[in-house]
């Protein structure tokens, strides 16, 4: 057992559009690998048991809790973290809406929440408030009481709708 644990593997994946490679033991959690091996410290770890949602990233386009996945399972996958949301140095409409609506305080939960919201809005362009709250139920935020987050998501949905309408 001890020796197995130490046998490591090179894990290669596409992180935020760049091919990256690092070392992982079979038991290394994906969140630890992303944070400490590849430096994606935007991924936050709040519970390590799959409840808080802070560690949410997208693996091949789907939201995943990176504390419940092993690094070796992400071999050859496309992994996107919160660091991928901005266009270069310009924040996305979602990020700007979060700032406008005071949707974050300490920002620790925010990385995971943004990833779920980004995926959700792609899937559900015209959500109701209760759908937004339902989607957020997989995340814990201790600072905001969620109001600003809900408003930000609804605002982005409306913005995108009217933009698409104009076209």
């Amino acid at each position: 057992m001890e020796t197995i644990a130490k046998q490591g593997a090179r894990v290669q994946l596409q992180l935020n559009g760049r091919v990256r490679e690092g070392f992982a033991e079979p038991r290394t959690q994906l969140c630890d690998f992303l944070r400490h091996e590849l430096g994606a410290t935007g991924v936050h770890v709040g519970c390590e048991h799959g409840v808080c949602g802070a560690c949410t990233v997208q693996v091949d386009g789907k939201s995943v809790r990176s504390c419940l996945m092993l690094a070796v399972q992400a071999q050859d996958s496309r992994v996107d973290t919160v660091e991928s949301l901005a266009e270069g140095e310009l924040m996305s409409d979602l990020q700007l809406a979060f700032r406008r609506n005071h949707a974050l305080q300490c920002g620790f939960c925010t990385a995971g929440i943004l990833m779920s919201c980004a995926e959700f809005l792609g899937r559900e362009p015209d959500p109701t408030e209760s759908q937004v709250r339902d989607m957020l139920s997989g995340h814990l935020c201790r600072c905001t009481g969620y109001t600003g987050i809900v408003r930000a998501v609804l605002e982005v949905a409306n913005e995108r709708k009217s933009k698409n309408g104009e076209k």
Partner: peptide, 13 residues
């Protein structure tokens, strides 16, 4: 906010 929203916060860990 900008740093926190872009995943560029610098927390303890």
């Amino acid at each position: 906010d900008e740093a926190l929203l872009r995943g560029l916060g610098r927390y303890g860990d």
